[in-house]
Computed example of a mutant assay.
Amino acid sequence: MTEQRSTRGLPLEDICVVEIGHSLAAPYAGIILAHLGARVVKIENAAQGDYARGWGPPFIDGASALFHAMNHGKESISADFGDPACARSIRDFIVENADVVLQNLRPGNLDRYGLGAQDLTELCPSLVYCNLGAFGATGPLRNKPGYDPLVQAYSGMMSIVGHADDAPSRVPVSINDMGTGMWAVIGVLAALRDKGRDDPERGRIVDVSLYETALAWMTVPLSDCLAGGPEPTRIGSGSPNIVPYQVFDCTDGAILVAAGNDTLYRRLCNVMDLPSLADDPRFSTNGDRVLNRKVLIPLLEARFAQKPAGDWLNALEAGSIPCGPLQTVDRVVTNEQTASLDILRRTPDGRTTTVALPVSFDGRRPPLPGNTPGLGEHNHLLIRTPAHDRADDLLRQESD
């Protein structure tokens, strides 16, 4: 059985969430809420479970490491929505127990089984029901399915990732899936607070989507475009609005330098022994440097290429210039700063190490909410036995 931790003292310890979700967006919202203390009951397809169970290798005890990362500490019920009795049991469980429902199935899918937002909020007016969609609740693409890379392409995000001559590439983490999960949590928490403040019997229907999340990530490029700025181009690790603000190659590695204002730029020129660049009118202000990026960056690249990364980092840090090494993932895992944050945690059964909540309360980070459930491990939550029926009969007789 899945061992669950105590939620005492956590902000959402009295909240029950039903997650009818798969892949990443809804499960990520669910795991955030679980880390905050909520009880999260995950409803999975009876035939194969959440698709993400197979998204590996690596695998841990038959399920992908990705699935463990997104679903530890939850309870799992396997369901066949096409079975009216099963759908009815899930509906009853939600009405009797849930404060929040998260769902990211295709639009209209759950409506066929009486599990959509309108049906459930009519049965349970205090329910907060959150739809996590692909392209939004309105518009010509409202019923179109979507995955993270598709939305990265459609939102313009993919057009600005990489270097000028690269083939199109995606941000190599599911930034829109996970971002949508975060917006779902923000919306749910706002709805829960609103319900408690104004009317404890009034819930909300919250809608978020991958495309809206992508547009939010694209706030600066879109705003630049709306202001009449130039068409954004691929500039690798650099920023379209700040120069120099990117990775530079050294003799034995690469470092990121973030000279985010004019004072830092002049300090950088001093540390690099390039006084002429500090005084050059083409580079006097950040706006000048952005316009003359193609002139300035090669000059800085040539200078950085003359020394090892460690030498540059020491000199830049001594000059109070923001900088850091370009680390690989394996180095991040063993990094002293990572370790000091105690953010990489093991589940109680020791099977999985993953990232804990990136939030602390009074200096304490919430622990992982528990182990990863097996598919349908908690089906007993929906099963009515003859003993249950006999107990109900006794209660009715006593009340009569």
Rank of each mutant, 00 (worst) to 15 (best):
V95A: 13
P367W: 00
R289Q: 01
N143D: 15
N335K: 04
K42A: 08
Y147W: 07
A117Y: 15
A85N: 13
V247M: 11
G37L: 10
V355R: 00
V161F: 01
F283H: 07
Y211W: 03
N371S: 11
A79H: 00
P168K: 05
A69F: 09
N131G: 10
I186Q: 11
A29I: 02
T7A: 14
D393W: 09
A227L: 14
I186Y: 01
I32H: 02
D362I: 02
D119G: 06
L66M: 13
A25F: 05
A318G: 15
D99F: 11
P172V: 04
G374F: 08
L132G: 03
V128R: 07
K42D: 03
V359R: 10
V247E: 07
A315T: 09
L12S: 02
R303M: 03
N261G: 05
D224G: 10
F135G: 00
R345I: 08
T219Q: 12
R267K: 15
L381W: 04
L226I: 07
A254I: 00
E231D: 13
D362V: 03
T2E: 10
F93I: 11
R193D: 12
L120E: 06
A167M: 13
T233M: 03
G229K: 13
G179S: 06
A302G: 12
M1K: 12
R331H: 15
V329L: 15
L256D: 02
P27Y: 07
G196K: 14
V332N: 12
L381G: 02
P145I: 00
S209T: 00
